[in-house]
Design a protein around this nucleic acid. Structure first.
Length: 215
DNA sequence: GCCCAGGGGGCTC
DNA sequence: GAGCCCCATGGG
């Protein structure tokens, strides 16, 4: 965990996931797909002001109304449909109870979530980890970029392959997984940006084999 | 004006 | 099952 220790020492504890309730985390996980978090915040505020940060409230709201409120988050038609798909599944399968959903075994629930429209591997894992407190680590483009540049695996590694790499080599600890993902995000934004590595001052600089010659 | 941001669905071959 | 295109707004 040498890398984790360094990142934690450099960045300190994070605030992931920034939300008041598990359902708000789920909404955020869907809304943030391929969009900067900044944009999502506006949509979340709109939903909160409208009293829609509850499953039943979203269930009872028209798709058109939802679209208007989440517009700042981009892809608003697709995302309104995804929010609807989730709350409909929640109601049908768990009578609207998130705690009932999150009492199921991790592997089974993950499979079930992947079958819901709009929920792929990253979104499913974000929901399971940050809203459900399951011990599973979220992978993303940042994780891929940082660890590919460091030489741990090839850029074309699958999502599942990448996740196995981390979870097979780390203790099973939800707090560790939550924090590690957040730390990688911080590193990628500050020092390992797309098409622009800023290796000066990078906490991993001396152990990154490709320092200075990145894409 | 261009690129990027905390992806996923659906189609094609 | 890999390779594309689509979805769409907002900030740097």
């Amino acid at each position: 965990m040498a890398i984790y220790e360094r990142l934690y020492k450099y960045f300190g504890p994070s605030h992931w996931w920034p939300a008041d309730t598990p359902f708000e985390i789920i909404v955020g996980a869907i809304l943030t797909q391929n969009v900067a978090w900044k944009n999502v915040e506006k949509a979340i505020i709109n939903l909160r002001d409208a009293g829609l940060l509850e499953p039943e409230a979203i269930y009872g709201t028209s798709k058109e109304e939802l679209e208007t409120l989440i517009r700042p988050a981009g892809f608003y038609r697709a995302k309104a449909k995804k929010l609807k798909a989730f709350v409909e599944h929640l109601r049908k399968r768990y009578n609207g109870s998130l705690s009932a959903m999150f009492s199921r075994p991790l592997t089974e629930l993950r499979q079930e979530m992947l079958a819901i429209y709009g929920i792929g591997p990253e979104t499913a894992d974000a929901i399971l980890c940050y809203a459900g407190n399951y011990p599973i680590m979220v992978m993303d483009v940042y994780t891929r970029r940082v660890f590919t540049r460091m030489g741990f695996f090839d850029d074309n590694i699958s999502y599942d392959g990448m996740q196995a790499f981390f979870m097979d080599n780390l203790p099973e600890d939800q707090h560790l997984y939550k924090e590690y993902h957040a730390l990688i995000d911080g590193l990628a934004k500050h020092f390992c940006r797309k098409n622009r590595p800023e290796c000066q001052g990078c906490p991993l600089g001396d152990i990154c084999p490709r320092i200075g010659v990145n894409i």
